[in-house]
Design a protein around this nucleic acid. Sequence first.
DNA 1: GCATCAATGTCGCCT
DNA 2: AGGCGACGTTGATGC
Lengths: 216, 216
Amino acid sequence: MVIATCEVDYAGRLSAHLPKATRLLMVKADGSVLVHSDGGSYKPLNWMSPPCTLIERDGEWTVKNKAGETLVIRIEEILSDSTHHLGVDPGLMKDGVEAHLQALLADHLDVIGAGLRLVRREYPTPIGPVDILAREDVGTVAIEVKRVVEISAVEQLTRYLDLLNRSSKIAPVRGVLAGNVVKPQAKTLAEDRGITCVTTDYDELRGLTDPTARLF
Amino acid sequence: MVIATCEVDYAGRLSAHLPKATRLLMVKADGSVLVHSDGGSYKPLNWMSPPCTLIERDGEWTVKNKAGETLVIRIEEILSDSTHHLGVDPGLMKDGVEAHLQALLADHLDVIGAGLRLVRREYPTPIGPVDILAREDVGTVAIEVKRVVEISAVEQLTRYLDLLNRSSKIAPVRGVLAGNVVKPQAKTLAEDRGITCVTTDYDELRGLTDPTARLF
DNA sequence: GCATCAATGTCGCCT
DNA sequence: AGGCGACGTTGATGC
């Protein structure tokens, strides 16, 4: 951990230059380097991801990686310099993303439409898995689940539908996009292609499955 | 800057839990908080972006933002605690992003093909702007510029072409994808659809516009 | 403020 | 190793 007045240049996938100012330089155990200012978000102003090597010489740090990207830090004045050993860190546990929404929807297909019977989740195709496949009285429904439904989701589902409708076994297959948020452009493009959009409510779905579940 | 043995919980867009370990806690001037381990990339294990408020009490930090997301840090033992004032930071200057490549290409359409005349950059359509539109002897060329050309760029340009070819004013319109890197799958799909791919050289293009321009 | 799109995106999974 | 999709994406820009 170094606090220093410095100037930084990055050359790699693009070029970037940071004028001289006082910043926080963090060197991690794996050799990666982060240049932070005292504001902004969690993203550093400049950085080099591991694996990389740091060479220090004449008040100039040069960090390189395999791909030939370089980060050069010219240090004018060091205001603080300290080292700490942190030890290993246990993993991070997450819960509540798309996989969870997909499971909840599979348990409550009535939210999508009446009379749907689950075939399976992650139904495999040569171009990737369909999130949820369900039968209805006539034909099949392919459901793509997204937290936020954008144009790319329409394209993705369109590819699945094109392919599934060539397989006579389960055709005809219609498409449904489900998500907590449906972007206007996505909705427009989807309806142009005969794809239905359903706006879901994550908390409500969770309530249906487990009425006792509450936030803390 | 605090080095401490701590346990962290985030609840907001998802839920996440970090078991007890020694980590680096960074509190920035704008109140944002970052929890870093001694490895990984530049992304913190947990964080809270500004604007947010930090409440410290009984060795427990609670960070909240407007949206009701919370980050709770239970501190077991503080190994180091220091404060530094950094002052304001001048902006970061970047060069080589898509916007620059688009401008350079618009000035050198001969790189795409002979006899092209620029109509305009960011040509508007109902489904988004076409990066560069140019006339040729017969018909029009729609050029999509990407730093890295991937399948999604092919899809994007295909949508534009479908739409533009319905408008008799400028039809027929053919498509060109231009980028520093063209992924093989994108090239294959593009050629299947009659779309040309051009691999550009950013440094060379910059040299054409300003022969004196050099890296620093 | 919302909607859209790029990013040195990063990360994780799967082939 | 490369492709592909999700992300607490974040960040910038135009309307």
